[in-house]
Design a protein around this nucleic acid. Structure first.
Length: 291
DNA sequence: AATACGTGGTT
DNA sequence: TAACCAAGTAT
């Protein structure tokens, strides 16, 4: 038998972090904002931004009315700024087509920009207390170890991963929703990637990985994420200049951030294509929507 | 199915 | 210090 929902949810009740988007009374919009911000960005960096964001844009329609420039400035250095634009686009759809209410239906959520398999189900489960499998990197790792006895999760496969998680959920909606957060929290706090704290694990006795003698991960090597010298770094440097000024800047100013002209120009072009940068009528550059 | 997409903390 | 890691999504 593996992963008793009661054991997990009891552990969660006892040990879970006190995160602001989990507080009682937080709106589905608040949950959605947190989920988007948490995509590839650590909790510690999200917390302050989430508070600022919710104070400024407490509803989808409020965000939809903001300029992309303001949205990108408040997003700041959370990373992957296209998320901020997509969240604003999603907010516009929610405001206009869903009566300013974040949808609770997974397929409706999936149709919104920036919302994929994980986020749609996270909103359904955490905001609307539904029984639906929520699979993020933490859950994948917990299941790989506790259920499959592997050292770590292999490459993601949405269909298989969802089925694995679904099989573990209890029937009751609220109970299943609590089990879903509990698995995520276990992966975040105990069953961590580098040095799992197995001594503190509530399901140690049910863990297939433990039983198998904690074999090392033997799947395909995970691709290494380079950053230094990549277009991602250059785009970040470019955007950093524009976030910092309310006045459009000349290209000569942007040219200062990176010495390789070809790469610099390619990155600026891609930012324009992505709608993260706008060129004014007089040929200057700025964040979109305020000139 | 691979790859691009930011940023910063930890080991 | 370089590599790894962090509540993924879109193409």
């Amino acid at each position: 038998m593996s992963l008793d929902p009661h054991v997990l949810t009891d552990w969660f009740a006892d040990r879970a972090r006190d995160l602001p988007w989990r507080a009682p009374g937080v709106s589905a919009w608040g949950v959605l904002v947190s989920e988007i911000m948490l995509q590839q960005t650590p909790v510690a960096r999200v917390e302050p931004s989430w508070h600022e964001w919710m104070a400024r844009w407490p509803t989808p329609s409020a965000l939809a009315d903001a300029t992309p420039a303001d949205v990108l400035r408040v997003w700041g250095k959370l990373g992957y700024p296209r998320r901020a634009l997509r969240l604003r686009d999603a907010a516009a759809v929610i405001a206009r087509q869903h009566g300013d209410v974040v949808p609770s239906d997974v397929d409706t959520l999936l149709a919104l920009p920036g919302i994929g398999a994980y986020t749609a189900r996270a909103v359904a489960a955490f905001a609307y207390r539904k029984r639906c499998p929520v699979v993020d990197t933490n859950v994948r790792r917990v299941i790989a170890r506790a259920v499959h006895g592997a050292g770590d999760a292999g490459p993601a496969s949405t269909t298989r991963d969802l089925a694995d998680a679904e099989a573990l959920l209890p029937d009751d909606d609220e109970f299943a929703a609590r089990m879903s957060v509990a698995m995520m929290e276990l992966g975040a706090l105990v069953c961590t990637a580098r040095s799992p704290r197995c001594a503190d694990c509530p399901v140690l006795d049910d863990c297939a990985w433990q039983r198998a003698g904690k074999p090392a991960y033997d799947g395909p090597a995970k691709p290494v994420q380079k950053f230094a010298g990549t277009d991602r770094q250059v785009r970040g440097l470019l955007l950093d200049v524009l976030r910092d000024t309310s006045i459009p800047v000349a290209k000569a100013r942007l040219d200062l951030v990176w010495s390789k002209a070809g790469q610099r120009d390619r990155c600026l072009d891609s930012l324009l294509v992505d709608g993260l940068v706008e060129q004014t009528s007089d040929g200057l550059f700025a964040l979109p929507g305020e000139h």
